[in-house]
Every structure is written in C-alpha cells, then in structure tokens.
Amino acid sequence: MLSYIIRRLLVCIPTVFLVITLVFFAFQLIPGDAALIFAGEQASQEQIAQIRSDLGLDKPVFEQYSIYLQRLLKGDMGKSAITGRPVFLEIKSRFFNTVRLAVVATVVSSIFGIVFGTISALKREKPADYVISVLSIFGISIPSFWLALLLMYFFSVKLKLLPTTGNASLKHYIMPTIVLSVYSIAFIARMTRSSLFEILGEDYVRTAREKGMKERIVIAKHVLRNALIPVITVVGLQFGYLLGGAVVTETVFAWPGLGRLLVTSVEQRDLMVVQGVLLVFATSFVLVNLLIDLLYGLVDPRIRFN
C-alpha cells in the first residue's frame, strides 16, 4: 500500500506544477496593468513604476515566473490590491468556511444519493424507481441560483424560519446545503442505480442467492461493496466540484467563503487574490482526485498492484 501511495504522489506533483504554470501564464494574457490596479488611479507615474519594480513586473515573463515559484514555495501569494493584506491570509480566513460547507453537502448528498440509488435499483421498473428517476432528472436540471432564491422566498421571506445570509449558526447551513446537495444527490443516485444494475446481473450474485443467502446480506456483502468504486469516483468528484463550484451559492447566500471572495475580487479587479483563489481551487481538485485514487486502493486491493 505504501508503494501505491508513493506512486500516486509522484503523479500528483507534476500535475500540481502544471496547474500552477497554467494559472500564472493565463493571468499574463489578461489586459490591464496590475501595478496600476495596486497603486490606484490617483497614483503618480513614479509610484506606479516603483510598485511595478517591487512586484517584479518590469522583468521578463519567465523571470517573473521563476520569482512566482520561489514565492509560492515560501507560502507567499502576493498582496491584495484592495486590502493590502497577504493573499494567503485572505484565502485562509475563508477557506475553511468553504470546506465546511462542501463537507456537509457531500455527506448529505452521499447518504441520500446512495440510499435513493439503491432503492431505485432494487425496485426496478416499479413506482419507487420511476419517482426517484423523475426527481433525479429534476435535481440535475434545476439551476442552483433559481433554487436558492426559491428557498429564500419560502423559508426566509414567507415563513421566516431560516436566515438568508451568513454562517453564524447551524440554521445558516440548511439552505446552502440543500442548494449544493440537490444536483449531487441526483447524480450520485443515478450512478449508484446504474452500478447496482450491473452488479446485480453478475454470476456470483445469482450464486449467492441460489445458496439461500438472505437478500439483505447479498446486497450488503456482494452487491454494494463491489458497486462502490464508481460511486466513490462520483462522490469524490462532487466534493471537488463543491469546493470550486459553490461560487453562485456562496454569492446568493453571502456565505463568507472562497467562492464569494472570488466574485468580489473579480468585481474589484484584485488580480492577485483572483489568481490565488483559482490556484487553491485547482490544487484542491487535484488533491481530491489523489484521495480518490487512494480510496480505490483500499476498496479494491487489485488496483494497488496495477
């Protein structure tokens, strides 16, 4: 298992390096003067030139890239042009708010998605299967911003049961979690259903049933366990999606996370913060995929020897 982990880490390192490289050079193509944004419109040409020199923007692109890598190794992502604080601190103050919301939404969507998918597979072509299939299509199709506004209208404006913004209490988690979970529940349910269909037709499942093994033991021991690998893939990818894709939800509910920070920074043209947030999102997604690979090795030992 240790050698498998080392192999996956060795694959992950160049991927992260590629992400860093792509993010850096993508921002070189954005029009505008970062030094002017940082200095402000009222700054003199001498001040702008000094800031450009301090930021290393007067150097060739590849030399800037080398300096950028050296700073990243030291944990330095630059400074915010708006607040003047280090970008690392701006991200750190909001990162765990996004992670907590993503974890809660992933747990909720995994539980309901697997349960609904299992029921749908076991009740194939019965009313329960049709109902869950229709709800899954609805969950995948509904726009997140529309669902968020709908929930706010009913639970906050009409019923006055839930707060609309912030993250101060458990009540603040309910509506954002629902909005983020609906799509994931539908997607996980459909994947679980398809995976279970495939496993239920295998010879070893029929053999277990013919031996007189109870149905719940067949499902738990032979079917669900072997159907876990594609489901783990979907759950892991959904967690990565929730980390980087909660921008709309965080904006609607004024959730103090990275998604809202990204939107605010784009509006204010705070390029250093935008660059830092995108880098964190992309790196997090790579690390989530690494975790999925490691979970594969735990669920199916055969993968570790491939």
Rank of each mutant, 00 (worst) to 15 (best):
L278S: 09
A49I: 02
L200F: 05
N226C: 12
K59S: 08
K160D: 06
E125G: 04
S184P: 06
G257W: 01
Q70K: 15
T249V: 15
P127W: 10
N97I: 01
V218R: 04
A39N: 07
K211Q: 09
F27P: 03
A189K: 06
Q70N: 14
F116C: 14
I137A: 13
K74R: 15
S44D: 12
S133F: 06
R193A: 03
L57H: 09
F187H: 14
F27C: 06
L170P: 01
V205W: 03
I48V: 14
T15F: 06
K74W: 09
V134C: 09
D129C: 12
L287G: 02
S133Q: 13
N306Q: 14
L162M: 12
S80E: 06
T251L: 04
R124G: 05
F62C: 09
A254M: 09
Q50I: 00
G56A: 13
D300V: 01
F197N: 14
V157P: 01
V231N: 05
S284E: 04
D54G: 12
V182E: 00
I119T: 10
W255E: 01
K221P: 03
N167H: 07
G297D: 06
Y130V: 06
R71K: 15
F17E: 04
S194V: 13
A189P: 02
R71E: 13
R100M: 04
R124N: 13
V223A: 13
C12T: 15
D129H: 12
R302F: 04
G40W: 05
V280K: 07
A35I: 08
G113Y: 02
G212Y: 03
L290C: 07
F27T: 05
N289I: 07
L147E: 04
L122R: 09
K214P: 02
D293L: 08
I217G: 01
V286R: 08
R7Y: 08
I303Y: 10
K123I: 07
L150R: 02
L10T: 11
R193M: 05
